[in-house]
Simulated assay, not measured.
Amino acid sequence: MEFDFLSPVSDNILDEVTHLNAQTIGAQLKLHTSEHGLPDLDKVNVAIFGVRENRRAVREDSTPDFESLRRQLYSLYPGNWRLNLADLGDIQEGDAVEDTYYAVSKLCADLIKQDIIPVILGGSQDLIYAQYRAYDHLDQMVNLVNIDSKFDLGDADKPISNQSFVGKIVVDKPYNLFNYSTIGYQTYFNSQEEIELMERLFFEAYRLGEVTSNIGHMEPIMRNANLVGLDIRSIDSASANSDYFSSPNGFNGREICALSRYAGISDKVSSFGVYEYQNEMNKLTDTLVAQIIWYFIEGVNYRTNENTISAKKDFIKYQVPIDDDILVFFKSPVSGRWWIEIPFLNSVNNKLKRHTLLPCSEEDYLEACNQVIPERWYKAKRKNEV
C-alpha cells in the first residue's frame, strides 16, 4: 500500500515506545516509521491515523498535532483482545482542503476494502465529509451517526465548514446517504429551521437528556450505522476542557465511552472518527480521547458477526399485527438483540436492500404488542417510499 501523503509517527514518540511496558498498546502496535516506512497490514483489524487539517473550522485554529494524544493512547493496556492494530501516522494538510479530503477518502476506502477499520483522529469536523466520500465506490447506501451537540446541517449553498458538512453530504452527488442520526443534540445550539429540516428528511435526532437517561437505547442506533463521527465538543467541560470550547452540559466520560463501545461492537460500523481535536487541550482531555478510542477497539473485539444472512436464519421471528400492518421482529438467540423488518419496495434502488432489517430494542417489540408503532420503523419505511 503506497500513500505518499502519510507522514510517519514522530521520532519522539518512537523513542518513548521503547521504554513502555511490553504489554501496552504502544509496544504492540504496528507503526509507520521514518526508518521502515508503512507497516505490513496483513491481518491488521484496526488502523489509526491522524488528519492535521483545520482550515474549514468556523474558528480556524492551529494545525492539530496528535503527539500528546498518542502518548496517552500508547500507554494504555489492551483488554483480552484478539485484534492486530496499526498506527499509520498522519495525513498532512494538502495544498488545498480538497486535497486533504481526497487523501482521507482514498485511505479510508482502501482500508475498508481490506476489512480494516479506520480510526480517524481529526481536526475540524468537516472531515466527516471526506470519511463519508470513502463509500462512493463501495456500492451501498450508508447510515451516518454523529455524536454531537449540533446537527451541522448548515447552508448547503455556502462553502463547507465544520458546522455545515451534513448539508453537503445530503445534496452532493453521488447520493449514498440513507439515514443520518445525531446523538446528544442540545436544542439551544440548533435553529428551529434545522430541527424542522431533520423532521422533514426523516432523520433521527436524540436530545442529550433523552440519551443520558438511558444510554443503552443508543445501542440499536449504533448497530445500524456504517460510519460514526464523534465531536469532542459534545463532552461537558468537566470532562473535556480547552480554550476552544467550554460547555457545562454534554456527555461525561463514562457516557461518551459507552457510546464509543456501542459503535465498536456494531457489526456494520466500518469507520470511526474523533474530531475537533485542538492543540490547547489538556492532559485530561488527551486521556479521555485515548480512552474513547480504547473503548471503540474493545467493542470491535467483541463483535458477534450477526449482520449476515446465515446468522439471520437462526433468529427467532415474531409477528405483531397493528392496524393494517404486520410488524415482523427478529431476536438473536445468541446476543438477545432485536431487529424489525422494513417493507422493501421493488421500485427502490437496489442499494437499499441491505437496510430491510432495522436494529431495535426489546422495548420496541413490547410497545408494538401494545399497538404503538416504533417511530424509527415509521421513518425508515417513509424513506423507502420517497
Rank of each mutant, 00 (worst) to 15 (best):
300 V>S: 08
261 R>P: 06
261 R>I: 00
272 F>Q: 13
221 I>C: 13
260 S>I: 03
236 D>M: 05
211 V>T: 14
274 V>P: 12
219 E>K: 15
243 D>E: 09
224 N>L: 00
201 L>C: 10
297 I>W: 00
239 S>L: 03
221 I>R: 10
284 L>P: 07
209 G>A: 08
190 N>K: 09
264 G>S: 02
192 Q>C: 03
219 E>I: 04
300 V>Y: 03
239 S>I: 04
250 G>K: 03
212 T>I: 12
218 M>K: 07
268 K>Q: 14
232 I>T: 15
239 S>Q: 07
230 L>Q: 05
292 I>F: 06
248 P>T: 04
280 E>G: 00
204 E>W: 00
264 G>A: 06
198 M>D: 01
220 P>R: 04
208 L>N: 11
196 E>I: 00
246 S>G: 08
266 S>T: 06
263 A>I: 07
233 R>V: 05
191 S>C: 05
278 Q>D: 12
292 I>V: 14
201 L>N: 10
283 K>F: 05
278 Q>E: 12
261 R>S: 08
258 A>L: 05
285 T>D: 01
200 R>H: 13
294 W>F: 15
210 E>R: 06
276 E>H: 10
293 I>N: 01
257 C>S: 13
258 A>W: 02
228 V>Q: 09
266 S>L: 01
197 L>C: 06
273 G>E: 06
246 S>W: 02
262 Y>C: 12
224 N>R: 05
289 V>K: 02
277 Y>P: 04
197 L>F: 04
209 G>H: 10
255 E>Q: 15
249 N>D: 12
284 L>Y: 08
263 A>C: 08
293 I>S: 11
275 Y>F: 15
191 S>K: 05
232 I>S: 04
296 F>K: 06
228 V>A: 09
200 R>N: 13
243 D>I: 00
264 G>E: 01
228 V>H: 10
231 D>V: 03
260 S>T: 07
252 N>G: 06
236 D>N: 15
291 Q>L: 11
273 G>N: 08
208 L>V: 04
260 S>C: 08
234 S>R: 02
215 I>H: 14
203 F>L: 03
239 S>P: 02
224 N>V: 01
278 Q>G: 09
272 F>W: 09
227 L>Y: 04
262 Y>G: 13
300 V>W: 00
194 E>N: 15
202 F>E: 06
238 A>V: 11
265 I>R: 12
270 S>E: 13
241 N>W: 04
213 S>V: 01
